[in-house]
Structures are given as structure tokens and as C-alpha cells.
Design a protein around this nucleic acid. Sequence first.
DNA 1: CATTAGATTTCGGCA
DNA 2: TGCCGAAGTCTAATG
Lengths: 249, 249
Amino acid sequence: MKFLVKENPDNDQLFNFINEAFSKRAFLLLFACCKVKYEGRAVSRLGLGDRTMIIKGDGSFLIHQDRNLEPVNWQPPGTKFTVELDDHRLYLRGSRRNPKEVLEVEICQAYLASYHTGRDIQMLELVGYEEDMRDMIMADPGIIEEGFRPTAREYSTNTGFIDILGKDKNDNLMVLELKSRRAGVNAVKQLKRYLDSFVDHKKLVRGILVAPSVTEDALELLEENGMEFLALEPPMDLKDSGVLTLEDF
Amino acid sequence: MKFLVKENPDNDQLFNFINEAFSKRAFLLLFACCKVKYEGRAVSRLGLGDRTMIIKGDGSFLIHQDRNLEPVNWQPPGTKFTVELDDHRLYLRGSRRNPKEVLEVEICQAYLASYHTGRDIQMLELVGYEEDMRDMIMADPGIIEEGFRPTAREYSTNTGFIDILGKDKNDNLMVLELKSRRAGVNAVKQLKRYLDSFVDHKKLVRGILVAPSVTEDALELLEENGMEFLALEPPMDLKDSGVLTLEDF
DNA sequence: CATTAGATTTCGGCA
DNA sequence: TGCCGAAGTCTAATG
């Protein structure tokens, strides 16, 4: 891995440094006083100030101010870059088509520039989604209730896909709406719409919202519509991938 | 603004450097070989690799790999940090309550550490949102059609808020659903649900989707339900804030 | 390439 | 503080 750092480069030096980084498809880090302009899906302007910028080898472009998790301006992967030196003013532009958008940074003074060419092949292992809940329920339907039998996963209706469709021990149809986080009224409305698509069904159709918790409003709406809530946490156990050992942490 | 850079610090030096940055609530930048562990809303593990980390003065914590716009791990503003040196292994932890979650980085070797204490007071000016469209329509209802009179903004129904409610020149109720970008079938379904809440209304109720463009599916669904589409671009003119001058760009 | 649904969504606004 | 809705959402999966 090549790794270079330059402190307080003038714009001529920075121009060369950035071009060097681009030619190597490196991970570029900049800290500089700059102005920012964006035009594309919206239009934005940001006046002069000190920002930290990241340009990744895949064309991701992030500009961070000193607060908030989210970048103040950005460009997704696939962005093409140009850098232009115009009478000691340095313009860094990232452009994309589809949608057509341009992010332009005018750098007045850079404090830090650095790039590195290493690749990071490690993949994040992550659990705790709705999908993990589905897997868990399909593998062990009894956690919903005794006698529950799933009949379909991702069952298609005219208003969308039902997470899990099944029957209870009395052969009543059960529509399960899963949420991996605290569920709100929208989840209940969604469940209601699924039930509506079974309106001409002969037997009872039960609607069950499955989530770790539910808002008070949502619970009221559930009860008003004769639907049920079942508290269930998404599974948080990482599958053994062989990459990590007990010693890792 | 204080600004410090340290290249290839050993973990003892890094420990002091990070503590210094924390005591100043500085913007901290790290590039290091590390392992990452997250437990909270979900659970994740990331094996050894080179990552760029940002810790902001407001408690935002970002860990970036060499690809993708989004950080591979993160913690929102308000995170509290601790740094621990244990037999030359350095642990950087960010903790939050509500929800309870911890992000831990084990740093093996740091390549770059830097912090700065400047504040960036510039605010982003952004236009092109739904809200700007609402403002534009409320200020000049004629752009919808001749004789249109808005009667309510954010009118509440049992399925949500109607963007703009009004009447046409023949006193028919008009329900406007605004989208600042290309509208899809979901926007049409939403509009349909709003219209359904006026089902027992005596006179004609018109449903109008207002957006710069619409998907073909959505247009079909609109026509099937006797609703209308109106092409309207969100305003892209920056409001005069006094912060920027003509010379800015 | 477009569409869709989920996200450790984040963020702002309002009660 | 909690909830709801929008976002230049992003991202992976799917047709």
C-alpha cells in the first residue's frame, strides 16, 4: 500500500497531488478551506469554510462539515472527477450522468492532503434485519404461536408483498407484517391494506404485526381493526463464518 | 483554528493524541489498520483492514472502507467516547444510550492522525424540495390551472396529510399530491388513498399528481383511477440570503 | 438499465 | 423526548 501525506500544500502542489491520486484510483483525503456548489437532483450552495473531503477509488465523493453524521454534500460511487487550476484557484469537480449532477469544490487553501492505494477486502458481517426475522420465523414457526404454519414468504397482493402468509391451528389465514424496529402507524396501515385484499375470503383472516415494540397510536389502530401485535426481537447472533475466531474480540 | 497532524504514531502516542482531541472537542481524523465491532440496533463485525475514521466534535463517528458512499460502521451525533490502551492495543469506543449501542474499534497500527478545532458556521442552502413546490404553488396557484384556489396546506386525513387541498373554478374539490422528483406508483397509491377518504363527498373530487415527471406505470394507474398528472418542476432559484454574493461563483 | 423495499437509515419539525 | 415524514436519501436484489 502506497501512502502519502502533504501538509499545507499550495494549490500548485495540491493540483499535482490530486492528479496523482486520481491516476492511481487512490483513496483521497483532503482538509481544506473551500466553497461548494451542487447542481443536479437539487441545487445547493455552501459558503467559505473548512471541510474534510473524501474521494474513494470507486468514485464516491463526500464533503463533511464539523457536525452531523451525514455529509453536507456528496456524490455516489461512479462519479468522474476533474481538477482544474485557474489562476491559483483550484476547482475539483465530480460529475455523474443519470441523474446528471455536478458537485464542484473551489479550494482556497488546503491544510492536509493524503492518499493511499490499499484495498480493503473485508466484508461486514451484520445481523438484525427484517430478513433475519423472516428466516427465524420460517425456521421455527412456533415462536409466533403454537400450531402456526407458514405457507408463503413474500406473498404478492395488489398492494404489495406480504412478509409471511400462513395458517393457525384452526386453519384461519394469518398475515404477518414484520418490522425489525419499533413499529408505527404506517406498519399497521400497511397490514390493514393486505387484509383488505382478502376481503372476500370465506374464513377469518388474522393480521399480526410482529416487531420488537410498537407505538401507542399503532397499538390503538391495531385493536380498532381487530388485528394483533406480537413482540419479537430480531435475531442478533452472527452466523459462524469461519473468518472470526473467539480470539478476535 | 488549531490543526495538528501526526504520521505513523505508535499506539502510545496515538492514545495521547486522541485524548487531546477529545478534550478540545476537535474534529478527529484517523487512518489506521483496525478491527470493528458494533452492538446495538444490530450486531456487526469487521475483520482487520485499513479504514478512515472521522470523529466530529458533536459526537458523530464514521468508519469508511475504500468503497461505497455510506460508512461501513457509524454512530450518530451525541456519542460519548472512551479510549483505552491495553498492552499496546488501542481500543476506541463510542457509546450511546437510547438506543443503547456501542461501536468499538481496535487499532493495530495508525498511519495518520489529525485533528482541528475550527468551527464551520456556514449553512447549506438547498432548494428543489417539495416544500419549495408548495411555497411556489401557494404563492401563485394559477400555475396549477386557471381558477385554482388552495384552501389548505397539509390537510389531515386518516391516511396522512394532503399536500395541498383546494377547489377549481367550478368549486370541485382538488387534492394535490406533490413530488419534487419523478413520481412512481407509490405516489399514485398515496393520492388514491387520500381520495378514498372523501368517498362520501357530494361533488366531484379531483386527484392531481404534481411532479416534474412520472413513471409509465404510475401514469397508467392514474388514468385507471380517473386521476390527473400535472408536470411541474420544483423551483431551483436560490432564495436571497445575503450570505452569498454574485461573486461567489 | 429501471424498479422496489429496507435501513444501526439520518434529519428536521412538531407535539 | 417520541413520533412522523422527507431525503440530492443509499444499497442490494430483482426483472
